[in-house]
Design a protein around this nucleic acid. Sequence first.
DNA 1: TACATACTGAACCTCATGGTTCAGTATACG
DNA 2: CGTATACTGAACCATGAGGTTCAGTATGTA
Lengths: 121, 121
Amino acid sequence: MVQYTNTHLDASFAALSDVTRRGVLEQLGRAEASITDLAAKFNMTLTGMKKHVGVLEHAGLVTTEKIGRVRTCKIGPRRLEEEMAWIEKYRQLWAARFDELDKVVEELKRKEKVDGRKKRK
Amino acid sequence: MVQYTNTHLDASFAALSDVTRRGVLEQLGRAEASITDLAAKFNMTLTGMKKHVGVLEHAGLVTTEKIGRVRTCKIGPRRLEEEMAWIEKYRQLWAARFDELDKVVEELKRKEKVDGRKKRK
DNA sequence: TACATACTGAACCTCATGGTTCAGTATACG
DNA sequence: CGTATACTGAACCATGAGGTTCAGTATGTA
């Protein structure tokens, strides 16, 4: 109701939460690959890799096409724009609050005559 | 071994893959809140919300502090830099491949004598 | 002291994940 | 044709996620 892209975000963040799938994306960013290629590279059964590819495909991050007996996987149409956007929005919220805090922190520092322990960034 | 931040990425992308937790983050971006506050806002039992907060805390996205009987939750130290960085890296990979494709597309366009401008998004 | 509030932990439920094996099916190749 | 290759699907397994209830514990408050 409130958000209309929840489904997308759910699926793609979930897809990204697995190291193998992130690896597959990086791999496919460099070159297309078959299920067999990917399974070999990530030391996994064909069936296991197929599932990962399925998850990525479901999230729109990968597309596949079967030609003959080989299913070729490539990077999909979604370029993580929504995910970037969500994170950016969140970071801005955070930044806004942080600006307020900054003043408080500055104030405290002044008062405490900080002992250099926290170097800040 | 290969990647040192996998654990972080796994945990934070997984944390972000749930709509309730994204909601909690947005909420905490605006103001601190107790477990009770959050549970009420997201229509959930205290125990359920505590678990979500636990996941976010484990991912470093939220910190909590219990004062008296109230546990106050606020945005944590991690600002999703690594997640942004991963996505950016991925998008650049993608872009590199896409540049190559662009040439092909241009070529095709020329050949097809594309029919006028496509208004596009 | 008594009672309400705020959280905590254990136990349970259901369903999804990440993986496997095994038995197909479809396609390429000699 | 026969065989190897490449994938597919069903079934299974262990674990974890997202949620609940229920029974505490600790802390405010009248």
